[in-house]
Write a protein that binds this DNA or RNA. Structure first.
Lengths: 210, 210, 210, 210
DNA sequence: GATGAATGAGCTTTCATTCAT
DNA sequence: AATGAATGAAAGCTCATTCAT
């Protein structure tokens, strides 16, 4: 009977599934913003539901717990960031230029969608107990890590960057960029974040080049 | 510092003040450990009191709120770290060697007293609402920042490091080192943290040198 | 009974009524099992609907509330048990033999369809607030009580059982048999429930005989 | 220091511990009444706290969860009932008289403290999921069972009751008496519960005697 | 200074029921 | 008849903080 319905109401059903997917994403977006702005523990489920003008109970039809929601968000965020870097990886430019573009894309995102970067810093980084179960060993951020790894391996292979332990290089990217965004969030940077693209991409390049 | 107090004060009533200072510090130490291990929100005041075998009520005689305690801890931690770097700043060695020593001291601390570094990452970094009031603009970590600033200014003046916006350099130190310790905490580093001293101090030096 | 309906009604629209009756019964069966196994409050309407692969909304087309469903089930269960005893009542055997058969039938049901007996113990017995309105004074289990009453009156009239307050006798049947099934459910009985038929029917007979 | 305090304030401390024990018992009493009257799931922790004019939070200082409270109550109830029967067991009277007294004591309690018996029927019997963990195999009601077992073994040894599987006899006591109290609770008994002592003790004796 | 019982607001999560489709 | 997203009140439980002793 289900099959029958599927055939019969194909258009209708698809619209429903689509609608649900859209709502799911809108929950992710809203929760991402609230978690980033107010912290994981200070953001309540009713906060999220109210912002979305939906009921608490219904929110649980989409995500079975607050923790599950937090994990879906980090995956989502990691994918988005990873996709940006993938584009750069696929460009036919020098490693130095790629570094510049990665820093640029990261800081642009920190400016235009600060919640995405801040989620890393303020939610993922510091609520180990939430992500321990299901995100062990950074698998929930593999979307992002993988692209940095590809960038680094390519650059080493092409002879433009020194060969060293990947994590030494990864820590530089992740930590340096994250650190700058943190400073931005603390309002201590004397200049706009984009001002630093030049300095920082040069520093990174010098740190890693052969 | 404790030793210093002991020398300074003599007599009966001063011993009481001394005793109180000692207890105050033991609370800081214990809370530091628990906050770092379990997170700020997952650590309760009763948790801290139980660990110290003292009553909750009495704990409040030393710190008027959980938030105040958290702020005292970040200052304390920042002082300890800052003192270590001050020692290095006062050495008569090259900037390159200083960088090496700073990285070394940081990673040694991450290994021997991981709670001090993790407090930065897991508590200070991500509970803005707690530190907003009283620690604006990173004044509670000025003990650490100041020393990095002195190191950097000296090195620029001596002509060994390139002159650039201080925060570009500071973000590199703070972010890179913090990032590595985070990776260590996530258990993703294939080698012991101390293994990375060589790589990372070289990377930092190359990034900043003239 | 279902078979009977099938014979009685013919034609298209009647088939619909038949279909509805079938579905109604399947809901009762499923809910009976779930309520018995997991308890009334731990069984949710979605649980029942999912097990039946039907929607919650549709389930409400058959039973207007969870409480109504629970009441229908106790009536159904009582009818089934009553029917079994009715058969025994109609047999041309001694009261002693009837007691044996009643115990036997009860324990066989406890073994083969444990949910029917457990529903009495775990749902009906303990959720007074659910059955208060509509099942006052045990009218929802009259199907079962009536047959025990008929058995007892016949036996007294025939001179084989002592004349005493009906409830003294009824409490013995209901309580003793129910108690044994409870012990079975708690897994404390050293032997299979059927082993006890002999003992228990003898005990009951001795308790009640003239 | 603790030791010191204990010596110093011995009187005071004992009073505090005593006070706590009293409060603990008052919680048990109140929860027992509410659980029995309204059912386990329909009684909320706020209900209990309000009745006691204490705060919800403080109640949790005495019992770590609703389930734990329920288990403490069944142990308590079982002890009280067991103590009553122990007294009878120690009397120098015939088994027949002991049966009479057991039934009498049970029905008296059902009349004067109905919540104790009803707790067995309406809470313990039917919320398996609550008692599963920690009360397996009826260990939480062993206070009661043990005394029935002692009564039965003594009576068999003295030659006054037939030797049979203990559970056949235990089921008779527990089920029959419980069943009668259930009927009382349903308000279907035409006479006062005490009226049935005579009938029921005779029935039990006849059921079990040699 | 020291104790820990007490408070109560606030959290996450559940679920019977409704209703637009 | 059938669907299942949506509602929202209410549950169990936690915890920073207070205060009488």
């Amino acid at each position: 009977m289900l099959k029958y319905n599927r055939l019969r109401y194909k258009g209708g059903e698809l619209k429903i599934a689509e609608k649900k997917a859209l709502k799911r994403e809108s929950i992710i977006q809203t929760a991402l913003q609230l978690f980033s702005k107010n912290g994981f523990h200070k953001t309540t489920i009713p906060d999220i539901a109210n912002t979305l003008k939906m009921s608490v109970g219904n929110l649980y039809n989409y995500f079975s717990s607050k923790d599950v929601l937090a994990k879906e968000i980090i995956k989502y965020t990691s994918e988005v960031l990873g996709a940006e870097i993938r584009t750069i990886n696929n460009m036919d430019i020098s490693s130095e230029e790629k570094i510049y573009k990665i820093v640029e894309v990261y800081f642009t995102m920190a400016k235009e969608r600060p919640e995405m970067i801040e989620y890393f810093l303020r939610v993922y980084l510091s609520n180990r107990e939430v992500f321990n179960d299901g995100c062990e060993g950074m698998i929930c951020v593999s979307g992002f890590i993988t692209e940095i790894m590809i960038f680094f391996d390519d650059a080493v292979e092409s002879g433009s960057l020194r060969n060293q332990d990947f994590f030494s290089a990864f820590g530089l990217f992740m930590g340096y960029l994250g650190g700058m965004v943190f400073l931005k969030g603390e309002d201590v940077l004397p200049k706009d974040i984009e001002f630093y693209v030049e300095d920082i991409s040069r520093n990174i390049y010098h740190a890693l080049k052969v």
